[in-house]
Nucleic acid binder design. Structure first.
Length: 482
DNA sequence: ATGTGC
């Protein structure tokens, strides 16, 4: 019998896999997907929701978000929360690119201010922000400095001249997870991290100059400092080889740990350890350190974005009001307090390809946004629109304060390379007035918009189900890619 | 995502 036959439709765009589907399930599965995408949904991704629902200490629902697709162990576009008493932590529930995330920088510029200068701006951004597989940053980190990066994140960056002290106020976790402990991060992860700090990376990572194209909620847009016609910059990047290595290191640790602690898992890729174990605590500290690396990384690139705008436009970044709107993590696990059947409980929330979407009043939301909920940044694919939403009470009730993180891949990288041609895509974007600079032609074909689910539908489902509400749409003017 | 397989 197909697993999809067991799925119950709860309401428009919301589906449930009953906990009775499988004797091992300790929670139900619940996922949000555009009704028109239901038939295309991979069975494998649904099975992964079920596998996660079988893990010890899982709370309420194993959740799939509108961009869900098959991933390593846990689905991408997945959220699961575990009890601190009998739950687990799993590197597969966070993903390889620890704290891959998105940051939005605003300005007081309009299209007229960059008229005739977009090409130069894009060329210089591409030059000043290193990108590509194995790309190296342009600073030389001292051997012991990597420990400060891992322990202090964006705070290290600001203290070392990358950006402004007030930047930290508008970063998730203020750009620093205090649980981080660099002393348990492997030498190999540090060695990979040292030369790459301050680089964009490859794949779906990008840096775009964008324009605010549409405002859906004037009141909230105003609180976030956004206006129609405003030039903004979006950075999508992560923890590079450093986070990847931390994930690999701990997948190996967990592969032993789940056997040692006799955790029953349905897929070896769900390797995990009980939260009270040494292995779990060490992974959490190492993951937090890699998350800090990613925040330092995006902070440094922010600084170079501002410098580049200054160089091309001849005004200071302060004068151009290039403030950070917000910075969100897409791949992370965090201790948070959530309502579990009318009781407030501390749980470990895994978000893998998911954005935190905390609603109004949450103390984790910066004070200036607290009345309306946190900014939620959902990037589109190369050359397509991206969206700004706000967190909601519905997300707090239903999804542990989470929503989708992006478009969601539907073609593998290799299939995309077969189906698409880099020159045609470049021409197509240029015909729409979008300039693209990329390190390799391969990445352009791999990241073809057609290889992804339509981000518009992902965002629409989020808005219609209420797990994050639309605020604004931005569209790219130019794209820098690895 | 990623020294794009160990």
């Amino acid at each position: 019998m197909s697993i999809k036959d067991e799925i119950k439709k709860i309401k428009d765009n919301v589906y449930e896999i009953p906990g009775s589907f499988n004797k091992k399930m300790r929670a139900s599965g619940r996922f949000y997907i555009a009704d028109e995408y239901f038939d295309e949904l991979e069975e494998g991704a649904v099975e992964q929701i079920v596998n996660v629902a079988c893990l010890p200490g899982v709370q309420r629902y194993s959740i799939g978000l509108p961009d869900i697709h098959f991933g390593y162990g846990f689905p991408i576009g997945g959220v699961a929360a575990f009890s601190l008493r009998n739950g687990i932590v799993s590197p597969g529930g966070v993903g390889f690119d620890i704290n891959c995330g998105v940051r939005l920088i605003k300005s007081n510029l309009t299209i007229d201010d960059i008229d005739g200068k977009l090409d130069e701006l894009t060329e210089k951004l591409f030059k000043n922000i290193p990108s590509g597989v194995g790309s190296k940053g342009k600073i030389r980190l001292e051997e012991n400095e990597i420990n400060d990066v891992l322990d202090y994140g964006a705070e290290w960056a600001v203290n070392n001249g990358y950006g402004w002290p007030e930047d930290l106020e508008v970063l998730e976790e203020n750009g620093r997870m205090v649980d981080a402990d660099s002393s348990i991060v492997s030498e190999k992860a540090k060695k990979r991290g040292i030369p790459q700090l301050g680089s964009l990376g490859s794949g779906n990572h990008f840096l775009e100059v964008q324009i605010v194209d549409e405002i859906y909620n004037e009141e909230v847009a105003k609180v976030f400092g956004l206006e129609k016609g405003m030039i903004v910059v979006m950075i999508h990047s992560g923890s590079r080889g450093c986070g990847h290595q931390v994930c690999s290191d701990y997948l190996r640790v967990m592969d032993k740990a789940y056997k040692k602690y006799k955790v029953n898992i349905d897929d070896r890729q769900l390797a995990c350890a009980p939260l009270d174990s040494k292995e779990a605590q060490e992974y959490i500290q190492a993951m937090a350190a890699a998350a800090n690396y990613a925040w330092a990384n995006r902070q440094m690139m922010t600084h170079w974005v501002r410098e580049t705008f200054e160089e091309v436009l001849g005004k200071s970044a302060k004068e151009m009001e290039m403030d950070i709107v917000y910075d969100v993590a897409h791949n992370i696990a965090k201790m948070e307090t959530h309502k579990i059947y009318n009781r407030e409980e501390e749980v470990l929330v895994h978000r893998k390809g998911a954005t935190r979407a905390f609603g109004p009043g949450c103390e984790e939301v910066p004070e200036k946004y607290r009345a309306v909920g946190q900014p939620v940044l959902i990037p589109g694919t190369m050359g397509t629109a991206s969206y700004i939403l706000h967190g909601t009470d519905v997300a707090m009730e239903e999804t542990f304060g989470s929503t989708a993180h992006g478009a969601g891949r539907i073609l593998s990288r290799s299939k995309a390379k077969k189906d698409y041609n880099a020159d045609e895509i470049t021409e197509d974007l240029e015909s729409k007035g979008i300039k693209i600079k990329a390190t390799s032609k391969n990445v352009i074909a791999e990241e073809a918009p057609g290889a992804y689910k339509d981000v518009d539908s992902v965002v629409r489902v989020s808005d219609e189900t209420g797990i994050a509400k639309l605020v604004a749409k931005v569209k790219p003017l130019s794209v820098c890619k690895g």
